[in-house]
Nucleic acid binder design. Structure first.
Length: 481
RNA sequence: GGCCCCGUCGCCAAGUGGUAAGGCAGCGGUCUGCAACACCGUUAUCACCAGUUCGAAUCUGGUCGGGGCCUCCA
């Protein structure tokens, strides 16, 4: 089965056929750099990260562009509030964004252009649109003539009459039509500006993406992505600008990720339920955050809550436990020539899931089954002496790691990940490793002495405090309850 | 008001015409001094109503409930 992608433009899943066989051009709207990124940005970027990774895994030569919008009203306002230069502010938050994305384990896009690096290209597009009568200069601004573009609103599927009821012309704007939007804005005193045929000014919000995408990917390219909220007006306006200027279809597939709610409510600053990535990774492992996001389909809304994140942590630790057990089980076993089909079977299911509009939730379900199969095989009697079982576990182990990497998971060493996970939980329980170790030592002695009453007492005490003891042939270990 | 989405086991979550993946929790086993871990087994007819169909969670209409966009927003 080939790859199918849900296209916002058509409203349905379509078979993916790139413009140039074997190659994919993908543009994703990045962030406006005026503040720290929140969990919603984390989701959007993780979603497109796995799309990028999966396309690459599926054999495509992918060019992935994700921009920084580094000039905009919000940046200027924030910089003014802080009394610093807007360029300085943008630099600060570009750095913060890069750090956050690295923390979340995102692969680097092929290009990460900045709007301010494409001012010349932006001016060229404005000129073309003016020459074609699609745009007009007015008092140092340049506006797009929305009613000249027949396909306007084809992405968001709205209609003009109704839109116009809510549209208005802000003070200082000199538009012919309230629906028209700015391609270029005249600079007010103290604002960052660039020379242009219409006087000093700066780009409007949407034009930079038209400029950057066509410069780096060509006038037509395969995939354009972003959050749902960008469908209107941002992406609609990009289509209007690019298609009118180039007279070619813009992006072929439009992909939009769903929102993140917080405790069942829309995340918003006014509700005070705004979580930055920095806040979250103080409490939760970044990989847990990624795992949580990928356990739902990218177009569904997800609910961010402590409980859901804790569930995700349990799920991820199940994988790491299985991965660790598998590595230990086959360690030192001689290599053999026994063939195993299990890895290939798992990979086939994984691909089938991912080919269906990047269904990571289903894909992870299959990986869980792979983990369970490993555990089952390892548990069989005389496992290490059975070449076929060893071969199966080796195969599955390698496959789970390989497929995990495609969705950015399981990249840590299982032992250290599990240790870190345990230690992180300890601080909230008010108990130290030394304390636990000494209890284990005491209990071991009690067990040797067959003093099971004392032994059980120690175990129960620890359990009440949130620590679970695990006895095995090699000794006693512990984990968080 | 306009446009759009959703309602699947206690919780999370796949499934979009052929009789319901997976995870967490639960229950019954195996293992264990007893447990835990792991494994095995087990647990839903899909908000409601009416249609279409040989057959629907999946299509159509309606009802109820929840949410989003229409202004900056991932």
């Amino acid at each position: 089965m080939s790859l199918r992608i849900y296209n916002t433009l058509s409203g349905k899943k379509e078979e993916f056929q790139p413009l140039v066989p074997g190659k994919v051009g993908m543009y994703v709207c990045g962030v406006t750099v005026y503040d720290y990124c929140h969990i919603g940005h984390a989701r959007a970027n993780i979603v497109f990260d796995i799309i990028f990774r999966y396309l690459h895994f599926a054999g495509y030569d992918v060019t992935y562009v994700r921009n920084y919008t580094d000039v905009d009203d919000k940046i200027i306002n924030r910089a003014n509030e802080r009394g610093i230069d807007s360029k300085e502010l943008a630099e600060e938050f570009i750095r913060a964004f890069d750090e956050d994305m690295e923390t979340l384990g995102l692969a680097k896009p092929t290009y990460e252009p900045r709007a301010t690096e494409y001012i010349d290209e932006i001016i060229v597009i404005c000129n073309i649109l003016i020459d074609k009568g699609m745009a007009y200069a007015s008092g140092g601004d340049v506006y797009y003539r929305v009613d000249k573009f027949n396909d306007y609103l084809k992405l968001s599927k709205r209609n003009m009459e109704e839109m116009q009821a809510g549209a208005r012309i802000a003070p200082g704007e000199q538009k012919e039509n309230p629906m028209d939007f700015a391609l270029w804005k005249a600079a007010k005193p103290g604002e960052p500006s660039w020379e242009s045929p219409w006087g000093p000014g700066r780009p409007g919000w949407h034009i930079e993406c038209s400029a950057m995408s066509s410069s780096l990917l060509g006038d037509s390219f395969d995939i354009h992505g972003g959050g749902r909220d960008l469908i209107f007006p941002h992406h609609e306006n990009e289509i209007a600008q690019s298609e009118a200027a180039n007279e070619k279809p813009f992006a072929k597939y439009w992909v939009h990720n769903g929102f993140v709610n917080v405790n069942q409510e829309k995340m918003s600053k006014s509700l005070g339920n705004f979580f930055t990535i920095r806040d979250i990774v103080n409490t939760f492992d970044p990989e847990v955050v990624r795992f949580f996001i990928l356990t739902a389909h990218y177009r569904s809304p997800i609910d961010f809550s402590d409980g859901n994140l804790e569930d995700a942590a349990s799920g991820l630790s199940r994988f790491y436990e299985a991965l660790q057990a598998a590595a230990e089980a086959v360690e030192g076993c001689p290599e053999n020539d026994v063939a195993s089909e299990l890895g290939a079977q798992l990979e086939a299911k994984f691909r089938e899931a991912m080919d269906d509009d990047f269904n990571t939730a289903l894909a992870i379900g299959h990986l869980f089954e792979g983990a369970r199969t490993m555990n089952r095989l390892i548990g069989e009697k005389k496992f290490r002496k059975k070449a076929d079982l060893v071969a199966n576990v080796r195969d599955l182990h390698r496959t789970v790691l390989k497929l995990g990497e495609v969705i950015g998971l399981f990249g840590s060493d299982p032992h250290s990940w599990l240790e870190t996970f345990k230690l992180a939980g300890l601080s909230s329980l008010g108990i130290t490793v030394e304390e636990i170790e000494s209890q284990i030592t005491e209990r071991l002695q009690a067990r040797k002495d067959k003093d099971f009453a004392r032994s059980d007492e120690i175990r129960d005490e620890l359990e009440v405090r949130g620590i679970m003891l695990l006895d095995s042939r090699e000794g006693t270990t512990w984990k968080l309850k």
